[in-house]
Amino acid sequence: MIRNQAAIDFLEGRYSCGKLTSPAPSAQEIEHMLTVAMRAPDHGGLKPAHFVVIQGGGLDRLSELFVEAMTNAGADEAKLAKAEKMPYRAPLIIAVIARYKEHPKVPRIEQIQTAGCATLSLQQMAMAYGYNGIWRTGDIVNSPIVRQAFDLAEQDELVGFLYLGTEEGNGLCRKPPVIEKNVSYWS
């Protein structure tokens, strides 16, 4: 029995989009999105997810950081130019970090998963507000320079960067899911 068709329709319509422009969520919307993200499944109630909201001049700072990280990794000029532009793919980025807390019953992987669930919740909330986004990682999340800039301890994990904004070309990123290759059944 379907109890909330609107919720089902919303979840069936979720998709990522990297073609983003202004406007981004407002300060009030961001605060609400973060509040909902903190409701992600969280064994032990450890609240390992930490969020860094990056916009305006923060995008410039992130661009400089990415260039420094890629320079340190020995990237060529083309990769450096790409790294410099990466933060400007959206008007708002939220970096999501799993800050590991030692616990006898909650392993590190569960804490990382909590931060991942929080990231999904952020994107779903953005979509509920009429925006969209895309979760990006890549080698940059493991860069020692990036890890240091985000003050990550050895056991912490930069789960990724959630790029958020208004979708360009309404619906162009939407692709129907195909589950056959990704599902098996044990009966």
Rank of each mutant, 00 (worst) to 15 (best):
residue 45 G to V: 00
residue 143 S to Y: 00
residue 27 A to D: 15
residue 140 I to W: 01
residue 35 T to K: 13
residue 135 W to E: 09
residue 179 I to S: 09
residue 134 I to P: 07
residue 161 F to S: 11
residue 102 E to Y: 02
residue 43 H to G: 07
residue 151 D to H: 01
residue 115 A to F: 07
residue 84 E to R: 15
residue 39 R to M: 08
residue 65 L to Y: 11
residue 122 L to P: 08
residue 96 V to K: 03
residue 30 I to S: 01
residue 117 C to Q: 06
residue 181 K to F: 00
residue 135 W to M: 01
residue 79 K to M: 14
residue 143 S to I: 01
residue 97 I to A: 06
residue 91 P to A: 05
residue 128 A to P: 00
residue 166 T to E: 10
residue 37 A to W: 01
residue 45 G to H: 00
residue 12 E to R: 13
residue 158 L to F: 04
residue 40 A to R: 00
residue 163 Y to L: 05
residue 52 V to E: 12
residue 181 K to M: 04
residue 62 L to A: 15
residue 186 W to R: 12
residue 144 P to D: 11
residue 79 K to W: 07
residue 91 P to V: 10
residue 157 E to I: 01
residue 144 P to G: 07
residue 131 Y to H: 08
residue 51 F to A: 10
residue 78 A to W: 12
residue 9 D to H: 04
residue 35 T to W: 08
residue 85 K to M: 15
residue 14 R to I: 05
residue 103 H to K: 11
residue 164 L to N: 04
residue 26 S to V: 04
residue 91 P to G: 09
residue 56 G to M: 03
residue 50 H to N: 02
residue 22 S to H: 11
residue 115 A to V: 14
residue 38 M to C: 12
residue 160 G to N: 06
residue 141 V to D: 07
residue 167 E to H: 03
residue 176 P to Y: 02
residue 119 T to H: 02
residue 22 S to A: 13
residue 157 E to K: 08
residue 53 V to L: 00
residue 171 G to R: 06
residue 152 L to A: 03
residue 22 S to Q: 08
residue 25 P to W: 01
residue 137 T to S: 15
residue 164 L to V: 14
residue 120 L to W: 09
residue 183 V to I: 12
residue 98 A to C: 11
residue 129 Y to H: 12
residue 55 Q to E: 15
residue 68 E to A: 14
residue 99 R to M: 13
residue 108 R to H: 15
residue 147 R to I: 03
residue 123 Q to P: 04
residue 178 V to L: 09
residue 83 A to F: 06
residue 164 L to C: 07
residue 77 E to A: 15
residue 173 C to F: 06
residue 15 Y to G: 08
residue 42 D to H: 00
residue 178 V to S: 11
residue 121 S to N: 15
residue 1 M to K: 02
residue 50 H to Y: 05
residue 180 E to I: 09
residue 77 E to M: 10
residue 35 T to L: 04
residue 162 L to W: 08
residue 3 R to E: 11
residue 153 A to F: 00
residue 17 C to E: 07
residue 92 L to G: 10
residue 96 V to D: 04
residue 77 E to R: 15
residue 180 E to G: 01
residue 77 E to P: 09
residue 46 L to P: 02
residue 113 Q to P: 05
residue 81 A to W: 08
residue 47 K to I: 03
residue 32 H to S: 03
residue 160 G to F: 02
residue 43 H to V: 03
residue 34 L to S: 12
residue 43 H to M: 04
residue 127 M to G: 04
residue 134 I to V: 15
residue 124 Q to N: 10
residue 92 L to Q: 12
residue 40 A to L: 02
residue 161 F to G: 05
residue 15 Y to C: 10
residue 161 F to E: 13
residue 19 K to R: 03
residue 152 L to D: 09
residue 52 V to W: 02
residue 111 Q to Y: 09
residue 160 G to V: 06
residue 118 A to R: 07
residue 21 T to S: 06
residue 156 D to Q: 09
residue 130 G to R: 02
residue 158 L to T: 08
residue 36 V to F: 03
residue 14 R to H: 13
residue 112 I to D: 13
residue 137 T to G: 14
